[in-house]
């Protein structure tokens, strides 16, 4: 079964916003998330395929309402919980 990330050819996402980004990241936390991904992968906590799977198995409603790097963050959180590095809920306020 196709997962929500498999959007190729689907209809209804509207026009492409072709505007260029002034900088690679819109906020500092986005750069930190990419750094966390690279660092934790380098430390062997997960590999790229596990990471992609974690993003692509997000519930559709969550996938479609989160930004690109929020999905990265949620995937890292899910993997760290699955591997017992952090406890579920440990990141909550």
């Amino acid at each position: 079964m196709a997962r929500i990330n498999d959007v190729g050819g689907t209809v209804g996402f509207g026009a492409v916003d072709t505007a260029d980004d002034p900088a690679p990241f819109h906020a500092d936390w986005e750069a930190r998330v990419v750094g966390l991904f690279n660092a934790l992968r380098a430390e062997g906590l997960f590999n790229t395929n596990e990471f992609r799977d974690a993003i692509e198995s997000m519930p559709p409603a969550e996938y479609l309402t989160t930004s690109y790097y929020e999905r990265w963050f949620e995937a890292i959180r899910a993997l760290l919980e699955r591997k017992g590095v952090i406890e579920p809920g440990e990141l909550d306020d």
């Binding site: 990419v34 690279n38 440990e90």
Partner: peptide, 25 residues
């Protein structure tokens, strides 16, 4: 805030130091 908390937790648990993260970024 959640990203910062993840960084803090990883540092506390000895998984990843802030310095190493800065270097990788």
């Amino acid at each position: 805030r959640r990203v910062r908390r993840m960084e803090t937790l990883l540092e506390e648990k000895g998984v990843l130091s802030g310095a190493r993260l800065d270097e990788i970024i």
